[in-house]
Nucleic acid binder design. Structure first.
Length: 195
DNA sequence: CTTTCGATCCGT
DNA sequence: CGGATCGAAAGG
């Protein structure tokens, strides 16, 4: 099944972030943990580029955002609001500081295990939720997603129409329509309507 | 150094 | 709609 799908390559992820954010929809995020394989289909993403003030890398490289300046396909995992984690796929050539935030996935493999990690039935509908459901934490920060390991990305085309809207939860550049989601997929989080 | 605030989630 | 809860960033 999804084992047959190809890995995303660093060369493919070196492209434009605002184009890659929708291009990642439909692909699979695979997590191998505790002898189990968990997987989710990406249904919602957001683009962040260094020219954008909402991007962590907009004010240059720091200890926190360092993975964003690594090679394309690097994982950037950070703590938000003191208690949740967000997972990003670093894009564009090394040194740029761009990434795609994965905001929601559709649970595909290891649904029971994901449910066991969550306090309620809302498994992976939101960046913090999917990190908790899939066991994505700071230990995976900086990891290469372009090779099989504890966390990696398998390329697959999206199903159905792709919609765009403003991004969720930001105050700067809040009007840019850089949130992308599969319009007909029920696992997409609640957010602004398509713009 | 001190204060502010965030790419969020949950229970009410 | 408020509280949780921590560290990075902003301010003095």
């Amino acid at each position: 099944m999804i084992d047959r799908l190809p890995l995303w390559t660093p060369a493919e992820l070196a492209g434009d972030t605002v184009a890659l954010a929708p291009a990642l929809l439909g692909s699979y995020l695979v997590r191998e943990v505790d002898g189990q394989t968990l997987a989710g289909r990406i249904v919602e993403t957001e683009a962040y580029t260094p020219e954008d003030p909402a991007c962590h890398a907009s004010r240059g490289e720091t200890a926190r955002n360092r993975p964003m300046f690594g090679p394309p396909g690097t994982a950037y995992v950070y703590l938000i609001y003191g208690m949740h984690h967000c997972f990003n796929v670093v894009t564009e050539p090394a040194g740029r500081g761009a990434a795609v935030l994965v905001r929601a996935v559709e649970p595909v493999l290891g649904v029971e295990e994901m449910a066991a990690r969550r306090p309620n039935k809302d498994l992976t509908r939101g960046p913090g939720k999917l990190c908790q459901a899939m066991g994505i934490g700071p230990d995976l920060n900086g990891l290469a997603l372009t090779q099989r390991g504890p966390l990696y990305l398998l390329k697959a085309p999206p199903e159905g129409a792709i919609a765009a809207s403003p991004r969720v939860g930001i105050t700067k550049a809040a009007e840019l329509p850089w949130r992308f989601f599969l319009a007909e997929n029920p696992w997409v989080s609640k957010g602004p309507p398509a713009s």
